[in-house]
Write a protein that binds this DNA or RNA. Structure first.
Lengths: 265, 265
DNA sequence: CGCTAGGTTGAATACGCTCAAAGATCGTGG
DNA sequence: CCACGATCTTTGAGCGTATTCAACCTAGCG
């Protein structure tokens, strides 16, 4: 039950300057924006400026603790993190995951006190940003501001999907659905190969995400494998039957049509 | 199971001009903003301008259908609405509720296609706004823009609370928690009296909100009444033992401290 | 090589679901 | 104003999914 609690003791961050900057197109945030709508050179340069201060955070560190205030935003460049809520009886609920290309705590400025904790799962490579800078940048560049809002809106949709998963889906469907989501999100930032991706989560964490017990989580995963829908070997998930998995999960691909009208303004 | 589906067939809205405008302080949105931080006369006037086009929507109407696009924003002035998701097997999940003072579909502009449906519960008195107008207004008035972001951030928190409810709370705790939430949200906009409020929901809808069956929802509500924590008579909920209820729900009051620093910028 | 975190399995239990049917309440029209 | 139908609520009983407890296995790492 509390194995993770012991590991995840609050800790100071140790910023490390990273020397080798990837190519512009290698920043996952830029990939995401570009996916939403093709960016101009100038826009790419603006977004690149967001990545000037890069740090690495160790795996299994609590970055932000329930009750504290967050003063910075982070763009995830590499690695996974998650937000969770602790109950007094020792149970935890994972609320959402931060994958490459996601922005951590975009509401930093307006939220006096975070109700949730955020922790890294893998070593985390993030760009640190002043929340104010983010705001001024996106109000100066209307189109980027719109894409940013689109990102926030997508986060909003992911929350709803999590609610639907927990509310009316069975353990089997929940698991299928979450895996589909991970796959599609990672695909956009180029972190999949063919039909597989690296899933750096323990079954305990998955269980705490899907509102299941560890034991049942394990059985559900194995059932999915038995049915030849997926296979997992050493943290690498392969989707063997995408069609069927999507059908079971009743998964709706995130709508990202290139509708110009909605982006014109 | 599908009783509600029959009632909630998509329908055109019938706008009705409302003649008697309430006093400025009677607009729930203004109350909410003022609660976040005391507003100046000028700011109140700006917000009043948002309420120029008011319409009434009948009870039990689908305002926005899964798959369609929303072109307008609505400020709820009076009545309840909710957002939900339909699964192909007939099950539904209620995602969130819109109470007086809430803004419906603030992401209207950036979302090409809504994945969720929105329906009214009671007759709904709303102000209609152009999404673009909302944006321009809040970028012209920095402080109001900040309060608006704070509102979005609160919506975000409510989503998380719903996730936690569904993920790790028991039926009993879920119900207690949701009732607490309704009470506190209604209190801010002055829709409570002493320890009671009007809850215009059927048990079916509550069940679809909390991921429970109708039968179990009913038993859970009655258990709460049996334990003298609440009482319900004809849609009126009275909280009999606030302390204990809050404790069972492990309810965290929404943090709305008057911290000037976070509002200064 | 041994320790520890993570994964697997079995068995008993419980919480919540389904099916079914009967009551209560509300709105509406005769 | 009462009667009727429809919706909503309540109750019983059996069942099933997921939980809990407990033990054992496995893999990775120092």
């Amino acid at each position: 039950m509390d194995t993770y609690h012991n590991v995840l003791k609050p800790n100071l961050l140790f910023p490390i300057k990273v020397n080798d900057s990837p190519l512009s197109s290698d920043w996952p945030l830029i990939k995401r924006f570009d996916f939403l709508r093709a960016l101009s050179h100038e826009e790419i340069n603006v977004l690149k400026r967001l990545h000037e201060q890069e740090i690495i955070i160790d795996a299994h560190k609590v970055m932000l603790c329930q009750g504290n205030t967050s003063h910075k935003c982070f763009i995830v460049n590499q690695g996974w993190a998650y937000r969770y809520y602790d109950l007094s009886n020792g149970k935890r609920q994972v609320v959402n995951y931060y994958l490459p290309g996601d922005i951590i705590s975009p509401y930093a400025l307006v939220r006096p006190k975070e109700n949730y904790s955020i922790a890294s799962i893998t070593p985390l490579n993030v760009s640190v940003i002043e929340p104010n800078y983010l705001i001024s940048l996106f109000s100066a560049h209307a189109k980027l501001g719109l894409l940013y809002k689109k990102m926030l809106s997508e986060e909003d949709i992911l929350f709803m999907e999590q609610i639907v998963r927990l509310g009316i889906r069975t353990a089997y469907e929940r698991t299928a659905h979450l895996l589909m989501e991970f796959f599609e999100r990672l695909k956009i930032v180029g972190q999949t190969e063919n039909s597989s991706f690296t899933l750096p989560l323990t079954q305990q964490l998955l269980a705490e995400t899907l509102g299941l017990s560890l034991v049942h989580m394990n059985r559900t995963i194995n059932k999915l494998q038995l049915h030849k829908l997926i296979s997992i070997e050493s943290k690498k998930v392969s989707i063997l039957n995408n069609e069927r998995l999507k059908q079971i999960a009743e998964y709706q691909t995130l709508e990202r049509e290139q509708a110009e009208q909605s982006l014109a303004a």
